[in-house]
Nucleic acid binder design. Structure first.
Lengths: 211, 211
DNA sequence: CCCTAGTGGAGCACAGATGTTCCATTAGGG
DNA sequence: CCCTAATGGAACATCTGTGCTCCACTAGGG
C-alpha cells in the first residue's frame, strides 16, 4: 500500500517504475551533497544543474527545499551509520576500532563537509537518540576506558567531537593546501591516535590557567 | 587628510564626531559577529535588530552587505592577530606558547565560530600573506621542531588546522552539550598538548591502511 | 538654549530564489 | 512498435532580502 503511494502513480509492479526514478533521485541527492558541501546557500537551480536535470524535475522529487534537505539529512545519516557498521566498532582493540571508523568516515568526503557547513542538517537531539553509530561509538569509548587503552579523562562526547573536527581539519587541509588525501588521512589518524591514547602516568601536568 | 575623508562630513575636530559613530559602528560589528556566527545567512535586518539600530542606520555605515562582511573580516583578523601578540609566541617553550595561543583564541568566542561558519570571511590567500599571527605561528612550530619539543612530523599548516579544529570542537562542545567553558578549554588544551607533543621514539607505528 | 549630526521608520524599486502550471519531447518498458 | 512515464523548458506569481530615498524626531555638543 505504502509503495503505491510512494510511486506517485498507480502501477502494478513496484520496482519497475523505480528504475529511472531511483536513478534520478540518487543523482539529485549526490549533486546536492557536492554543491551544498561547498556552498550551503546554493540555489536549487545550482543543484539541478549539477545533477544534470531540469529544475522542474528536481521539484517533482522534492516539492520544497525543506524536503530536499530532509532527504539529504536521512541520506547522510544512513551513510554515516553504514560507515560505523563497516568499522566493526565492537571488535578488536578500541584504538584500532576508532581508527577504522576514522578511515571509513574520511572516505565519505563531501558528505562530511555537508555536516559541517550545515549543522542544522544533523539535529543533535535526533542524532543522539536515533543514530546507531553514536551509540556504538559511545560503547567503544567506554570499552576503551575499561580496557585502559583510551584516555579515561576524555568522555565519549569529546572523543566524538575531536574525531569529527580532525576529519574536518583533514579535508580542509586537502582542499585549501595542495595536500594528497593520503597524506591528510595519515596526519588525521596520527593526531587522533595521540589524542585518545591513554596517558601513561603524568596526567593534568599543566592545568588550565585562569586569566 | 584621511581622517577628514573617513568622517563622511567636513568637521573641525576629528574625534568629536567619532564618539557616537564609533559607538554605533562597534555595536553593529559586535552584533554581526554574534548573529552571523550562529546563522551565516542571517539578513541585515536581523543584524540591525541585534545591534539595536534601525536597518537604515546600518545601511549608513555599511551601504552594501559586502562592505559589512569586509569590515567584519578585518575586525576578526585584527582580533586574532591581537590574540597572537598577547600570546608572545616567540617566548618560552614552544608547547607552552602554543597553549597560550589556544587559550587566547578560545576567549574570542563567537569570533572563532564566525570564521568557521563563513570560511569565505577569511580568504586563505590573504590570511597567509598578510596575517602576522600566521607567520608567528609558523615560526613557533618550526622553533618547536628545532627544539625537539614539537612533533616534527606535523608541519606548521597541519598544527594550525588542528589548533583551529580543536577550538571549534571545544566551542561546539559548550554549545550543544551543557559543558562549562572551563571544562571545554581544559579538554581542548589537553588534546592539543597530546597531538603536538614530540613522539618519543616509536613514530609511524601504525601506517595508514590503504583499502 | 539652539542647531545639527545622528537616527528610525515608512515606502518604493529591484533582484534572485522559489513554488507552480502547462505543454512538447523523449526514453524505456511491455 | 506503441504507449506512457519521465523529463525539460517556458512562463507566471510570489516572497524575501536588498539598496535607496525622504521625512520626522531626538540627543548631544557648541
Amino acid at each position: 500500500m505504502l509503495s503505491r503511494l510512494a510511486g506517485m502513480a498507480v502501477r502494478d509492479s513496484v520496482d519497475v517504475e523505480s528504475r529511472a526514478r531511483a536513478r534520478t533521485r540518487r543523482a539529485i541527492l549526490d549533486a546536492a551533497i557536492t554543491v551544498l558541501s561547498q556552498h550551503s546557500a546554493a540555489s536549487l537551480a545550482d543543484v539541478a544543474d549539477a545533477a544534470g536535470v531540469g529544475r522542474t524535475t528536481l521539484h517533482r522529487y522534492f516539492p520544497e527545499r525543506a524536503e530536499l534537505l530532509t532527504a539529504l539529512s536521512a541520506d547522510v545519516l544512513a551513510r554515516i551509520d553504514a560507515a560505523a557498521v563497516r568499522s566493526q566498532l565492537d571488535h578488536g582493540p578500541a584504538p584500532a576500532a576508532l581508527e577504522r571508523l576514522c578511515q571509513e568516515l574520511f572516505e565519505l568526503g563531501d558528505i562530511l563537509m555537508c555536516v559541517f557547513s550545515q549543522p542544522e542538517l544533523v539535529d543533535t537531539q535526533t542524532w543522539e537518540e536515533c543514530s546507531e553509530a553514536d551509540k556504538a561509538l559511545t560503547r567503544l569509548v567506554e570499552r576503551g576506558h575499561a580496557e585502559g587503552t583510551l584516555d579515561s579523562t576524555l568522555d565519549p562526547i569529546w572523543v566524538q567531537q575531536v574525531l569529527w573536527s580532525l576529519l574536518y581539519a583533514a579535508w580542509q587541509h586537502t582542499r585549501e593546501h595542495s595536500v594528497s588525501k593520503h597524506r591528510a588521512l595519515d596526519l588525521c589518524l596520527r593526531s587522533l591516535r595521540k589524542v585518545v591514547a591513554a596517558s601513561p602516568g603524568r596526567l593534568a601536568e599543566r592545568p588550565v590557567q585562569d586569566p
